[in-house]
């Protein structure tokens, strides 16, 4: 029996199916993704990286940073906290409501509301938090539901406050998602470590900045040169045992500066519709993913924090 047509059809449908699922569907889904707005705040997100940081993406790619560092924060759930902002006009009613909510006596409730704003309930389901907020607000107080993303990544200090979504990578080409975490995730590194000088020192000598780091040093992104008349303002401020011999200094190349600018431009703390999270309004970023430090300006040689 001639199985040719059958084999052909089977292969055709297998390839067509994977093309449909892996190429066409994602293209329909996010192919026309556009800038969006942060929620709340309404600031445009994302904004394109500053020029130097955009160049840094190419340095990041060329040096294979993505082999050891991912740029994607995961999230396994979303919970609600109830935060009491103001006692309001009717404290006895508030204490009664708090007593009912938390099963506490009035003196305990009185103690609880000292030093507002304070988290009253944490890690609750949406319905429960809404009901509690309603009960507190009915007692004249000002309570608010805080949306909190949870997950193993988010519980790590400085890794971001919400999951990564497609918008985060809108202006990155190629997207440096990474798949291995031999080093830490870098999606939020610009918030975690906002100082470009720290990154320059860390690229030159990782072990000088983090004890026991297994990261490879990148000395070829730096140049050791003789000090001519004046020392360069860009020279790295190195610990004594790593410093260049007297009369020499270590200068970051433009690639190193671009890479540091790129790293401090990475952040995963902007609340979006598709990744809702409550951020304190005092720290709500005015301009979304603009880097924490001014990255267009060349890094100075101020000592690392």
């Amino acid at each position: 029996m001639n199985y040719g047509p059958l084999v052909f059809l089977a292969a055709f449908f297998a390839l067509a199916g994977s093309w449909f699922g892996l190429v066409l569907t994602p293209q329909v889904q996010v192919g026309r993704l556009q800038q969006t707005n942060s929620v709340p705040g309404g600031a445009t997100y994302p904004v394109a990286r500053p020029g130097l940081a955009r160049e840094g993406l190419d340095v990041y790619r060329a040096n294979g940073c993505a082999y050891c560092h991912s740029q994607q924060v995961g999230q396994t759930g979303t919970v609600c906290d109830v935060v009491l902002n103001e006692i309001g006009t009717n404290p006895p009613a508030l204490f009664a409501a708090l007593g009912k909510l938390k099963g506490m006596s009035e003196p305990q409730a009185r103690q609880l509301v000292s030093g507002l704003p304070k988290t009253i309930l944490a890690g609750k389901a949406k319905e429960e938090a809404d009901a509690a907020t309603k009960a507190l607000n009915a007692a004249g107080a000002k309570a608010q539901v805080w949306i909190v993303a949870v997950g193993p990544d988010i519980s790590r200090p400085g890794w971001g406050v919400r999951r990564s979504v497609a918008e985060d990578f809108l202006f990155d080409y190629p997207v440096m998602l990474g798949s291995q975490r031999i080093g830490p995730d870098l999606a939020n590194v610009g918030v975690r470590l906002p100082d470009p000088n720290w990154h320059l020192l860390h690229l030159y000598a990782p072990q000088a900045m983090i004890k026991g780091s297994i990261m490879a040093p990148y000395p070829y992104l730096f140049e050791k040169r003789k000090i001519e008349r004046f020392p360069s303002p860009d020279a790295l401020v190195l610990p004594p045992q790593m410093a260049a011999e007297p009369g020499f200094e270590v200068i970051p190349t433009p690639q190193a500066k671009a890479l540091a600018a790129y790293l401090v431009s990475l952040r995963a703390d902007i609340p979006l519709f598709s990744a809702p999270v409550t951020v304190a309004s005092a720290s709500a970023p005015a301009s979304t993913n603009a880097p924490a430090g001014a990255t267009n300006a060349p890094p100075t040689n101020a000592p690392a924090k």
């Binding site: 598709s274 809702p276 309004s281």
Partner: peptide, 24 residues
């Protein structure tokens, strides 16, 4: 494209939006 895990559907995402307050 606006629904990511751990959310199940658009209504659920919408229900988790932070409530606008004085700060916003």
């Amino acid at each position: 494209e606006r629904v990511y895990a751990p959310f199940h559907n658009l209504e659920q995402v919408a229900s988790f939006q932070p409530i606008s307050g004085e700060g916003e």
